[in-house]
Amino acid sequence: MARGALWLGQVLAGPAIWAVTFAAVYALHGTGCAQGWDAMATPVGSVHRLAMALAWGAGLLACGGLLLRFSGTETRWQALPRMGAWIGLGATLFSLFPLIVLPAC
């Protein structure tokens, strides 16, 4: 039973990373706007944008790590965790890219 549960966890890992990253960035966005983080500067942009970018980057790295971890594609059993990792990477990249092109608040 543990093997099946582990496999399901592997399939869900990529989308779960997206979900956590998306929720974290949205929470940081709301918190930062409420607390005025946008006005606090760092050498690479505001604290607000930096915090969101770090969370985004961590999510992308985690999904990339999953892709390296799940390399097999021979059987459906092997391929689905890899597909899950691609879903996580694509969704994290696309749904959160506005944080580098739009004003925050």
Binding site: L12, P15, A19, A79, I87, A91
Partner: peptide
């Protein structure tokens, strides 16, 4: 595309909450 459909279901389950 059984595998692709399963992956799509997984994607929909998660994305629909975003």
């Amino acid at each position: 595309g059984y595998g692709a459909i399963v992956a799509s279901i997984v994607a929909l389950v998660f994305l629909s909450f975003g």
